[in-house]
Deep mutational scan, measured.
Amino acid sequence: HITLTNLITEETTHVVMKTDAEFVCERTLKYFLGIAGGKWVVSYFWVTQSIKERKMLNEHDFEVRGDVVNGRNHQGPKRARESQDRKIFRGLEICCYGPFTNMPTDQLEWMVQLCGASVVKELSSFTLGTGVHPIVVVQPDAWTEDNGFHAIGQMCEAPVVTREWVLDSVALYQCQELDTYLIPQIPHSHY
């Protein structure tokens, strides 16, 4: 019994991606959610070859190996599938703050939850000092008015990073160091 759908849910078992011959794909929301959820992320060749051979072929032979941004053979989907007991964002409290493009905020929040993070909706909701690490995620190029994202640091004691930190961490299924993704914050004294 196979159901085809464009939506990823808890029940989804396989995410089928358009890939090149070496099982490398573009980074899409579907790709990120498939990895975050520990699903099989496979090339569409799995479907076409299975139909051709009239049997369901082994997914291992068709698993996506990499993507056009993070590298052609990083094995993120395999790492995620085999590490669902070791979520990459466990112990983190993440607030997805401000506008985002090409990806609804609720989907970004679901993605970080699938990776083990707790989501907070407001900067004031962080449970500071409880052994949980707060992180604010923003997408600077989605902000149309002044660079308000440079002043988020005044509203909460949390590192502010770009959305790329989430996307790179999920694609590779390895929590990336914050340093290269940090957004400089204007210190309090400048006000």
Rank of each mutant, 00 (worst) to 15 (best):
I2P: 01
I2C: 07
T3F: 11
L4R: 02
L4A: 07
N6R: 11
I8S: 05
E11T: 14
T13G: 01
T13I: 02
F23T: 01
E26R: 08
E26G: 07
R27M: 01
L29A: 12
F32M: 02
L33H: 10
G34I: 01
K39F: 06
V41H: 00
F45W: 07
W46N: 00
V47H: 00
I51L: 12
M56G: 03
D61R: 07
D61Q: 11
D61T: 12
D61S: 08
V64E: 02
G66Y: 00
D67G: 00
V69D: 08
V69Q: 06
V69R: 12
G71L: 02
R72C: 08
R72G: 13
H74S: 04
Q75I: 09
G76S: 15
R79P: 01
R79A: 09
S83I: 04
K87V: 05
K87A: 11
K87P: 10
I88V: 15
I88F: 09
F89S: 03
G91K: 13
G91A: 13
L92P: 01
L92A: 05
C95P: 00
C96M: 11
Y97E: 06
G98P: 04
G98L: 02
M103V: 11
T105P: 12
E109Q: 08
M111A: 05
Q113R: 11
C115W: 05
A117F: 02
V120A: 06
K121Q: 15
K121I: 15
L123S: 15
S125P: 09
V138W: 09
D141G: 03
W143V: 05
T144K: 07
E145P: 09
H150I: 14
C156L: 13
V161E: 00
E164D: 09
W165V: 02
V166L: 13
L167M: 13
L167S: 03
D168A: 01
D168K: 06
S169M: 01
V170G: 03
A171E: 05
Q174M: 11
C175R: 15
Q176R: 13
L178Q: 04
D179G: 11
I183M: 11
P184S: 12
P184L: 02
Q185D: 02
Q185W: 11
I186R: 15
H188E: 07
H188V: 15
S189M: 13
H190F: 04
Y191P: 13
